[in-house]
């Protein structure tokens, strides 16, 4: 920010911190007040990007749950090999004559099993470790943070290959591998949020009151960093979808004949020149889901960080 006589001496109006409260007007501060949860929801529902993201996510979740009851068959041949999109096969067929529309719908299921589960596990561990590191500081913090650094030092793919060879190629392997590598990232974010919170004297007041650390962490600090955790988890979910698709593409996750998107893209990539539809539609599935979850995360962050 460059400064001139007038502009240089003009910071934004008071930030609502304790000291500036002395000088600033109540009216200004009221505009700054944190909206309650209900208000946050209403604000979200008025944001078009959130609605678009949520729409796609709902669609794919419905696909993952309903493809079987609706009678789609992703495994058996229902047409000629490598047929282009048509009324009977909206997304065409693959080299074995399987309906790509059914395969893409069904492919949402493994993705939506692996990514949320891995994110959930990573969020649980990451939040717990972040809380502990941020609150106790000192040796605990150092040991945790430095071991995370070591974990970061390995290229992710190599590490996942390691995990995969240890646990075999399966969806469970994916869950474990992704969870292990997301835990430190979430822990770091949570830790820095905890550091901010512990600067507030209500934490010291709780200590003076003789509260145990577990109570302080769970009842005083956690509720206040929950928005950070939710936003971070959503961002991680998008990455998890991306990573799980990538790992399946490499053959480390779902195995044939699974309709998993990453695997399908990998298997059909050789046909892309004559039959673009067999790789393009599963890729589109990955893209829409990742972008949608990211849109939701962005909106959540905007609404909760005000």
């Amino acid at each position: 920010m460059s400064s001139t006589a007038a502009e240089g001496t003009l910071p934004l109006p008071a930030d609502g911190s304790a000291r500036s409260r002395v000088s600033s007007d109540g009216a200004l501060l009221d505009l700054r007040a944190v909206p309650p949860a209900r208000h946050a929801w209403r604000t979200l529902l008025r944001r078009p990007t959130f609605l678009v993201g949520a729409g796609f996510v709902v669609f794919w979740v419905a696909a993952a749950v309903l493809w079987k009851p609706l009678g789609f068959d992703p495994l058996g041949p229902t047409g000629l090999p490598l047929e282009g999109p048509s009324g009977a096969h909206p997304f065409g067929t693959d080299n074995l004559g399987r309906d790509m529309f059914a395969r893409v719908l069904a492919g949402a299921q493994p993705t939506l099993e692996v990514a949320p589960l891995a994110t959930l596990v990573a969020t649980a561990f990451g939040t717990a470790l972040g809380l502990v590191a941020g609150y106790f500081r000192g040796v605990v913090d150092d040991v945790l943070m430095r071991s995370f650094d070591v974990l970061y030092a390995f290229p992710q793919i190599i590490s996942v290959l390691l995990v995969a060879s240890a646990f075999g190629h399966s969806l469970l392997t994916l869950v474990i591998a992704i969870a292990i590598f997301f835990t430190p990232i979430i822990a770091r974010t949570v830790r820095s949020a905890v550091l901010v919170e512990t600067n507030h004297q209500y934490v010291e007041a709780a200590r003076l009151q003789g509260e145990r650390p577990t109570w302080i962490l769970a009842r005083e600090i956690l509720p206040n960093i929950l928005p950070v955790v939710v936003v971070e988890a959503t961002i991680r979910l998008a990455y998890a979808i991306f990573v799980s698709a990538g790992l399946s593409f490499l053959g480390l996750g779902a195995q044939p004949p699974s309709p998993d998107w990453g695997l399908v893209v990998s298997q059909n990539r050789i046909f892309v020149q004559n039959a673009w539809w067999c790789a393009a539609f599963p890729a589109l599935g990955i893209a829409t889901l990742v972008v949608s979850v990211n849109l939701i995360a962005d909106n959540l962050r905007d609404v909760t960080s005000r």
């Binding site: 109006p13 409260r21 002395v22 000088s23 600033s24 007007d25 009216a27 200004l28």
Partner: peptide, 8 residues
């Protein structure tokens, strides 16, 4: 006092 409109 705060809220009296000085800063405004």
């Amino acid at each position: 006092e705060s809220g009296c409109g000085k800063t405004t």
